[in-house]
Computed example of a mutant assay.
Amino acid sequence: MKLQTTLKTSFDRYPSELILSVLLALMYLPLIAHWYDGWLNKTISLEHEYFSHGIIGLPFAAYIIWTKRDRWRDLDDRFNPLGAVLLGLGGVLYVSRMPDFVNLSFPIVLAGLSLGLKGHPGFKLMAFPWLLVLLATPNDLPYLIAPFSEPLQSFIAGTAGFILTQWGLDVTVQDILLLVGGRVVEVAPHCAGFKMLFTTLYVALMLLYWTGSLKSKKTTVVFLLCAVAISVITNILRNTFLTLFYGTGRDELFHWLHEGWGGDAISAFMLLALIPTLAAIERLREALSGSDTIESV
C-alpha cells in the first residue's frame, strides 16, 4: 500500500516525466544492456571498448539527474523548436538499424526531450549528465582517429626505446617498431593510449563535478592537463614493460600485462592517481588565493 501511494504521488508530481521515462526505458534499456555486456565480457567491438568508462559514467549521470529532479520540476514548461528537430533526428537514427546510428540516437533523444519540455534552461540544468551520456555512447570515433595516431605511436616507441636503453638493453627503434632480443614489438594504433586517455579524461570530469571543482575554470583546465600527462606517462611505461617482457622472452608476463588483469590494475592505479592530483591542485589554488588576499589587505 505504501509503495502504491508513493508511486501515485510521484505520478501526480511528474506525470509527463514518468511516462517519458518508461518509453525511454523500453527503447534503450536493451541497448544499454548490450553495451554493458560488451564492456564487461569484452564481446563488443574493439572501437566500442574505448567507451567502457560508461560502466561507471551512466549510473553517475542517472544519479545526477535524480538529484536535480526538483529543480527540473520548478522550471517553467517551455518549448524549443530545436527539441523537436533533435527528437525527429533521434527517431530516424533509432529506426535506421545501423548500430552506431542507433547508439547516437540515445543522447540526441535526451537532448531533444530536455529542450522540448523545458527549453534552454532545462538543457542547461541537465547539460553535465547529458555530456556524460554522450561521451559514453559507443561510436566509431576511435576508428576515425586511428590513422592520425602514428606520430603518437612513434613518440611512444622512441621513448620506450630510450628508457630500455638506460636499463642496459640493446634496443633498436624503427618508427613504431622496437627490436629487442631478436623479437619485434609494434606500438600498434590501439596501443597508442587513446582508450586510456578517454577513460582518464572522463573520470577526471566526474571528479571535478563530484568535488565542485568544475566551477573553477583554472582548476578544471590544470587538472585536465594533468590527467592527460598522467595518461600519456602511464601508457609509455606500460608499452616499455610490454617490450621488456616480450623482448626478454617473458611471455607470461607479457600476456598478463597486455591482455590479462595486469593492464586493468595499471588502469586502476592511474585513475586513483587522479584523486591526490586534484587534491594537490585545490590546495595550491587555495594557497595562492590566500596569498592574494593578504597582499590586497
Rank of each mutant, 00 (worst) to 15 (best):
L201P: 05
M27H: 02
K68R: 06
G193L: 11
L288Y: 15
N235Q: 10
L225Y: 04
P142N: 10
M1T: 08
L113S: 06
S96N: 03
L31P: 00
F194R: 09
G263P: 00
T220L: 06
L164Y: 08
T67P: 01
R250H: 02
I56S: 15
V180P: 03
Y246I: 06
V22R: 13
L29P: 03
I145D: 08
D74I: 10
V297W: 10
A157Y: 13
P147K: 00
A204H: 00
L169G: 01
L7S: 14
F269D: 11
F11T: 15
P189M: 07
L115S: 03
L75G: 05
A280E: 11
V187C: 13
T6R: 15
I55E: 11
L110I: 06
L205T: 03
L164A: 07
Y246T: 01
A280S: 15
A227R: 04
P121N: 02
M196R: 10
L179W: 04
C191M: 14
R78Q: 06
G260M: 01
I230C: 02
H258S: 12
L58F: 09
G193Q: 12
S21A: 15
L24I: 06
I233H: 03
L201T: 10
E286T: 01
L284S: 14
H255F: 11
D175H: 12
L3G: 14
S114L: 07
N103W: 02
L208W: 04
L93T: 02
K215L: 15
R250K: 03
L224V: 12
L237K: 04
T240N: 01
F11L: 14
L89C: 14
